[in-house]
Design a protein around this nucleic acid. Sequence first.
DNA 1: AAGCTCCGCAACCGCATGGCT
DNA 2: GAGCCATGCGGTTGCGGAGCT
Length: 280
Amino acid sequence: MGRAPCCSKVGLQRGPWTTREDTLLINYIQAHGEGHWRSLPKKAGLLRCGKSCRLRWMNYLRPDIKRGNITPDEDDLIIRLHSLLGNRWSLIAGRLPGRTDNEIKNYWNSHLSKRVKNNTAGNKSKCTGQSAGKRSGVSSNKKGKRNQRELDSEGICSENGETATKIKIHLPKAMRVSPSSVAKKVNVSIQSMIGSSSRHAKIGDNANWAISGLKVVSNDGEAWAFNSEEFDGLVYDHDSSFPNSLPNDIMLDDIFEEYLELLKPDDHGQLDSLVDSLIA
DNA sequence: AAGCTCCGCAACCGCATGGCT
DNA sequence: GAGCCATGCGGTTGCGGAGCT
């Protein structure tokens, strides 16, 4: 049943990585670069599956990873982006320089979800005049493991105490996008565009892409337009080397504003109908 | 001090997707 | 178009440490 494992488990090391394994992986990647994960362990002398190597590198060993506590600004941005994007950890991570999707996911599950939930409960009682009651506790199953699905159906309250329905974006699952695929397919979704902001997106080597409305523009001016007149005001610039190259003067608030821009109330109808038509 | 529970986080797993042949 | 491979994503697991009794 199910799919065969990505790699044979026979003779492979599992569990926590040792410093020796880390060193081998770092040295190999420094010498040969990322990629070819399947063959990498053998070449690097590691008894790990490629997937494990990739994960270790992406989530822990990459030099650009920012270690340490999540700052209040980051914290705030995560909450707000999550309210817009849901559990699209890679998208959220793509907007937090040096942070990984795994880290953000863990942080959300262990810290923010509780806070958001408590705020919701607190504000709800304020909004409706009812006691937070049963909602005040964070539900948790054995060993504190929470069912992810419990965490995703919250409303949020505005500061003035009104209950605001959480902005839901009904988009297809995140997908990788490349210039060629965008060019080839008119059936490109808004999510593809947003997805291209992810550090995981394959934009092409040394290319800077900008999305203006439904228009993809490369450095050299090459562009594909998709009904862009319907999306005036939706401007999204992307630097493929993001997040490393993210200028320091870009405030996290600006990042959030970018997303809000994508969700202007006036555009909702158009967005929804467009997305529906694209998915159909 | 010992045992227990809770929590955080690294790692694993299955599935989705794109690219190539 | 089908089949395979490589990679990416999100959900889940389980270890180890901290805190509590």
